[in-house]
Design a protein around this nucleic acid. Structure first.
Length: 471
DNA sequence: CGGTTTCCTAGTATTAGGAAACCGGTGCTATACT
């Protein structure tokens, strides 16, 4: 038995590798940069965890969310790894100081892109032997770096200051453009690319045009009260998550709402309840979903045009991880495109904001916090005209992203085929239940889903009874 | 930009109709204050 398989079995308790895992790990051990695009639930964490045990030094994992870091720290502790820590604002100040003074004691350090800019932390990192750096959910670099969280772009200089250690980028969805952004920002040198098919054959796509907002509400009411969960309803405003949830709760549905303006502790609680099956439905903004562990999600409902095909893929990709029949439904009206664009643009720096940012008395001007931070980043790198040009381009691209989703649902081509095409992938085999462009029989999809779920429930009960009453 | 809600007015019945106001996603960290 080779070394990799031995560690896989002894340390991680798996009999064999899944698609691509061994290849990727071997490349990393050989000292190559790797970019791996594979669906959630395909064993991404193993890719950065396993090679750590065959290499000298510490692994630094850059992660977008505090909750994700917490979660992954716990996962490692479960398999008996004690040399693991998340260095972020959640860690009490004195503990952080202590940890930074003893970085070499850790095998895995999780942190945020923002924290990488912390001087004290950086000084300590420069004296640390680093095995490799991992960018988890690497599409965030492209999705957030330019106009939301500039520290994602600062990773570039940070890596340079570490003499360009090896990098592993992990994500579930990335278009060619996003891959380019990732490679550039992470200064990847001729990386090994592993790209798994993004198609989930078990998801049927249903696109429904309606007349107005009221119809969306009625549709959701009808669907959720007459079919099986668990499911996620994605909407575009925080208020609406609460309104829908209240409406469905009144009908006896087990549902909670979720959005970014909630207390962090409530968010964690709701996510856990959903994962453990105590809640059937979540009604959420796009704040919900990253890092969720649940393989039996059967329905994803959108009540709007999403702001990009990539974003939509991430959201529907949370369904059918168990391979059982699922359905993704999207409700839209002809005016949704403008609305989505407006929502995407509301904190976006306009020409006037940029102009102001370049004035000497800028310090006294009040701007949205995000705008100030973003412009501070670009001000260090570009002149006024260049920044204005850049943001025109970004705005243009955001408009195109929304448009490409809208044109996808308006033409006659298969949705599944188009979704994959957007990621430069081709559809190999079309499932029986495909999409509304392929004569989708929604009733039989829902029936199949119900049957599969009932079978599963029966099985679960049987297993439980067997444990309680061994024969 | 578009929808929904609130407000105003006319003019007397309590309400119709239209204008105006309001509202709309994503997260980190540092710091001050409870």
């Amino acid at each position: 038995m080779n070394k990799l398989n031995e560690i896989l079995q002894k340390k991680f308790g798996h009999a064999s590798f899944r698609d691509g895992q061994q290849e990727i790990i071997e490349q990393m051990i050989d000292g190559k940069d790797v970019i791996a695009i594979l669906p959630t639930g395909m064993g991404k964490s193993l890719l950065y965890q396993l090679p750590a045990y065959l290499m000298e030094g510490t692994v630094i994992i850059v992660s977008p969310l505090l909750s994700l870091m917490q979660d992954q720290v716990e996962q490692l502790k479960i398999i008996g790894e004690k040399r693991v820590i998340a260095i972020n604002s959640f860690l009490p100040f004195q503990e952080r100081e202590l940890a930074i003074r003893h970085l070499a004691d850790f095998k895995f350090i999780f942190t945020s892109p923002e924290m990488l800019q912390n001087e004290q932390f950086n000084r300590a990192l420069k004296n640390l032997s680093i095995a490799y750096v991992v960018a988890d959910e690497a599409h965030c670099i492209s999705q957030w770096g330019f106009d939301f969280r500039p520290d994602y772009l600062r990773i570039s200089n940070w890596l340079h200051s570490l003499n360009d250690v090896n990098v592993l980028a992990l994500t579930a969805t990335a278009t060619k453009d996003v891959v380019e952004d990732i490679k550039n920002t992470l200064r990847m040198n001729n990386p090994f690319e592993y790209i798994h098919s993004l198609d989930r054959a078990a998801i049927a796509y249903e696109m429904v045009e309606v007349e107005n907002q009221q119809e969306k509400m009625n549709w959701i009411l009808g669907r959720v009260t007459s079919t099986e969960g668990p499911g996620i309803i994605y909407t575009q405003s925080r208020k609406k998550t609460e309104v829908y949830a209240a409406m469905l709760r009144e009908q006896g549905i087990s549902i909670a709402y979720y959005h970014a303006k909630m207390e962090q502790s409530d968010r964690i609680l709701i996510q856990q309840q959903f994962q453990q099956g105590q809640l059937d439905w979540i009604c959420a903004t796009n704040a919900f979903g990253m890092g969720i562990h649940k393989d039996n999600i059967g329905q994803i409902i959108h009540d709007h045009i999403p702001s990009s095909v990539a974003g939509y893929m991430q959201e529907v990709g949370r369904a059918a991880r168990d391979g059982k029949q699922a359905i993704a439904s999207l409700l839209y009206t002809s005016t949704d495109v403008e609305h989505t664009f407006y929502v995407a643009m509301q904190d976006f720096p306009e020409e006037q904001d940029i102009h102001i940012a370049y004035q000497p008395e800028y310090a006294e001007v009040e701007q949205a916090e995000t705008t100030t931070r973003i412009l501070a980043y670009w001000k260090e790198r570009l002149n006024e005209q260049e920044t204005i040009q850049l943001f025109k381009q970004i705005k243009q691209k955001k408009w195109q992203d929304i448009q490409s989703f809208y044109s996808m649902i308006q033409n006659d081509t298969c949705i599944r085929r188009q979704l994959l095409h957007y990621f430069d992938q081709t559809l190999l085999e079309k499932p029986a239940h495909c999409c509304s462009k392929c004569r989708l029989d929604v009733t039989s999809v829902l029936r199949k889903r119900k049957d599969e779920k009932n079978n599963q429930d029966r099985l679960n009960w049987k297993n439980r009874l067997n444990i309680l009453l061994p024969s």
